[in-house]
Write a protein that binds this DNA or RNA. Sequence first.
DNA 1: GCTTTTTCTGACCGTATGGTCAAGAAAAGA
DNA 2: TCTTTTCTTGACCATACGGTCAGAAAAAGC
Lengths: 215, 215
Amino acid sequence: MTASSRPLSRKDIRRENERLILDAAEKVFAEAGFGGATMQLIADMAGLPKANLHYYFPTKESLYRQVVQAIFQDWLKAADIFDDAPGPVEGIGAYIDAKMEISRRHPAGSKVWASEVMHRAPVIQDYLETTLVEWTEGRMSVIRRWIAEGKMDEIDPRHLLYMLWATTQHYADFGHQIETLNGGQPLSDAQWVAAKGAVKRIILKGIGAQPSPAA
Amino acid sequence: MTASSRPLSRKDIRRENERLILDAAEKVFAEAGFGGATMQLIADMAGLPKANLHYYFPTKESLYRQVVQAIFQDWLKAADIFDDAPGPVEGIGAYIDAKMEISRRHPAGSKVWASEVMHRAPVIQDYLETTLVEWTEGRMSVIRRWIAEGKMDEIDPRHLLYMLWATTQHYADFGHQIETLNGGQPLSDAQWVAAKGAVKRIILKGIGAQPSPAA
DNA sequence: GCTTTTTCTGACCGTATGGTCAAGAAAAGA
DNA sequence: TCTTTTCTTGACCATACGGTCAGAAAAAGC
């Protein structure tokens, strides 16, 4: 009858279970940290026996590594918009929107990432040194080009990027604090719109972003 | 001969050991998280036997609680400057300086705080709901006054505060990432000055802060 | 000096955790 | 249908951890 009652192929089973486990793991790692997370907790949240987790992921660390790597991919992808934009208003504006949306839809991932970096990146240090460094260089050169073209103030691109990361990720990583300061309620849709607007407004004005001329 | 060879009074011993333990605990909690930290690690870093830790702090949680509470005090104190300032340029500028200085001198504390909040503030939720809420209200009314006096743009004070917290604390919490992007080197004195300058410049311009008239 | 109080610490304990394993169930292949 | 491969899982193990404790050492009080 239902799709779930018909027997699943092995590939489907594997994909489905890996997804269940990774999703559960992300949440548990985000809420408890690597050290505080237990395989049993992850298993319970995934609705599988603990031994089954070790069938798909041999160790807790290997499971954690996959969670972090997946998050890193999202993190990088969010900035494809950046490059093709004609100027900072579009490029940085869209980047802020994208990263705020990640913070909203995917706060657990952001927290795991923050935790990993705070603990000196024990599992993804090599990625930081290669992929992240290259990525950052690329974005910095885009920003420098905008500066050279007079489209924004002469700001050190590094610190601008840090501010963008810090501000947008704060809404995920410190979401609990924000919620508490919001009377214990999660931000409403309207409040998220206001948050995005405030961030974009302050930063774009702060860097003296000049609107691109209409095409 | 030396001060350390003469016998210490009981009060001195207690104060000294509590300090040793709290300092070590802050570092270990920052590097490993609450779950990843072990009493043995903290004991080793403090140079004391583990049983001695339990003499001064009955449980790991009580030790952690004291660490977090001390950090929270620093966190609040950093904003005394805020209130007496004539306008946003002085007030927010000084606040940014103060918080950047905390990130520089006291990164472990900032990380412990971030970790606590990320994990839904299990031990200081009551402080968030009382002290932090009051503190935030107070600062928001200062900002609203500045807006009413035409000293800055009409910005939602909440999101401005979040941006200040996010940006300044980022230099501590994500210090490892920043260090990696700085060629593996910690920020130099000059780079810290540049960082502070960039942050102040972008934010103060971003909120349209008007310099106060000379007295 | 003698007693009391506080501090110190190695040895120990119960529990929780990451991980293993063997045997069975289920799908795939022949 | 029979065999092979993959998946599932309860029971189990070794270890590490938070915490305890009894007795020694050291100050403080008298």
